[in-house]
Nucleic acid binder design. Structure first.
Lengths: 331, 331
DNA sequence: TTGTAGGCGTTATCAC
DNA sequence: GTGATAACGCCTACAA
């Protein structure tokens, strides 16, 4: 026994005016008598009118809604980015439809489809697909979109991402400056631009210090805390010789630290650990890491999209955010 | 130069049929010739038709969208709940509009308003308001809703929450069994049902063990990691005598642990720590804690709402989820 | 200053 | 089996 929503028609009848007088009153349009307006608003209030945005979206051909498609919602990195998006969205009277695609290709495609059906005005996406062509194919709608936290070479898309080459470089250089030479790099399998850049930064720092790059201490694992834990346990048991670990992200670093602690290895004395992202718990664990301005990433991403949605820019925007080393107690 | 979306009208014209033959084809309705259907679908595909859900929502009077209103999106507790909601939502072909109300009364009100304007079919909310009357007032719309992770005495609403009395009891009893008697309780200021239940559980365990309840070692702080850190530092410096800490949640426990470590206090030998929620990082930190089935909380919440939205139930549903003690190395 | 009419894209009803 | 038509609720020309 759900009550029907009140419509402007109901208000019009109650106020004895036409429906568009009501519309004018509700939308603060000019060309309306102050008293009429007052009366209409009062009646609307009394009847408990709630505007139907669905209907106005249809009429206006815009939904004031953006779609947010994330690879992995459980990673605090994305949550902090989301926070930035959410803030900007709210400030500009937009809403946000969220979909987690769990690093799954099919879900990514489906998510984009759903966003299109919902007629979102724009999309913010951290894509799973790495190949330009494939991504282009699924994104072949006329919805403006901005890629978050990733970069596609040669692809003419709007993007905002971090300077990961610099990040990898800073992290590695920091370990070298602390006297470390056998630096394990715990990278992720998924060879996208991000992991490649961090790897390049790592290599750059080693070269600069004239340390030979040893591919045997570079590991590609799943982006998962337990996999990191297991991998470090494994190399420890295999007797691999190393003096520090640079991890693709903080989550992997947590796993690594857990393994080291279990084996009674002293951090940073015996093994140093550097993470990446600086998610909120890293300050508690006192993890040295590379900080990406996550809130800003989300916040700015919305604004790039906003300008596109409102045709304020034509050319592509590519923003590379600066990163910084946060020194804590694991190094 | 945004291309217009293709409509069923366009398809009708191209296929030389009427618009509702198109509609029948697209929606798998009976009463359509197999060949006609095939032709129509082919043309729809060719033209790149994307259904306008906005329009069908208007027509059908349902949006297949739910609103999710969270107190605080940065708390991993909610992220895990969200994950459960997201999963159930996807499985049932619903979408989800998310709003973070940042523990703010005004935002809570506004969020509900926006959800109503968007004509969501239902709302999942972790409310900020604690008084039944006030909450009722803002929720006085005819949208079905389910309260997540909280309970209002005497209020006839659908709810799903954890057995926090048991949780508080288990945590405290565990510390007592480990020989601790001076158990600091780091609770949150915000006196809602959840914090009160955990406090009751704490008191129940103490009474059972015939330990005098000492209000001087029960603290109400802001639900914030740094506040927990500062509070523990403060009581340590004041020379307060205690042998363990039970924290309202894991985040507070992280702050407490950081303070203890900084002061060179051994955990668990000198001071034991128990948290609450069992968020993902707690297993890394090896924090003893009370586990709430978070994913399940979200997943089931959707299903309660689903049944309400589809009028499958009339009476109120109240689900109390069981909790369990997870023993790790801080006790 | 106010009202009438038509349309946004879809679906349901009713003829044919 | 298929098509014309109206309706969902709102907004915008245009007319009065």
């Amino acid at each position: 026994m759900k009550k029907r929503y009140i419509t402007i028609k109901d208000i019009a009848k109650a106020a004895n005016v036409s429906i568009n007088t009501v519309s004018r009153a509700l939308n603060n349009k000019p060309d309306i008598n102050a008293k009429t307006k007052e009366k209409v608003l009062k009646i609307a209030e009394e009847l408990g009118y709630v505007k139907n945005i669905t209907a106005s979206s249809l009429r206006n051909r815009k939904s004031k809604t953006i779609g947010v498609i994330f690879k992995d919602i459980t990673n605090p990195f994305f949550v902090e980015v989301l926070k930035g998006i959410e803030k900007a969205t709210k400030e500009n009277d937009y809403s946000l439809i969220l979909m987690d695609i769990e690093k799954d290709y099919e879900l990514e495609k489906k998510a984009i489809q759903i966003m299109a059906e919902k007629r979102v005005d724009g999309i913010l996406i951290s894509p799973v697909r790495k190949e330009k062509k494939k991504f282009n194919k699924i994104m072949n709608l006329n919805i403006p979109y901005v890629i978050i936290g990733d970069h596609f070479e040669e692809m003419n898309a709007d993007e905002i991402y971090a300077n990961d080459l610099k990040g990898g470089y800073l992290a590695t250089k920091h370990l070298i400056e602390r006297g470390r030479k056998k630096i394990v790099f715990l990278n992720v399998k998924n060879h996208n631009f991000v992991s490649q850049s961090r790897l390049q930064g790592y290599k750059k720092a080693l070269k600069e210090a004239k340390i030979r790059i040893n591919n045997k201490i570079i590991f590609d694992i799943k982006e998962d805390v337990n996999d990191a834990y297991k991998k470090i346990l494994e190399i420890l048991e295999n007797g691999l010789s190393f003096d520090s670990i640079f991890c693709f992200n903080d989550i992997l670093a947590y796993g690594a630290i857990k393994a080291l602690r279990e084996k009674g290895i002293e951090i940073p004395k015996e093994i140093m650990v550097v993470g990446y992202d600086d998610i909120i718990y890293s300050s508690i664990i006192d993890l040295t890491t590379i900080r990406i301005p996550k809130f800003e990433l989300g916040y700015k991403a919305f604004h790039i999209l906003f300008d596109k949605m409102n045709h304020k820019v034509n050319k592509r925007t590519k923003i590379v955010l600066d990163v910084e080393l946060i020194e804590r107690k694991t190094t």
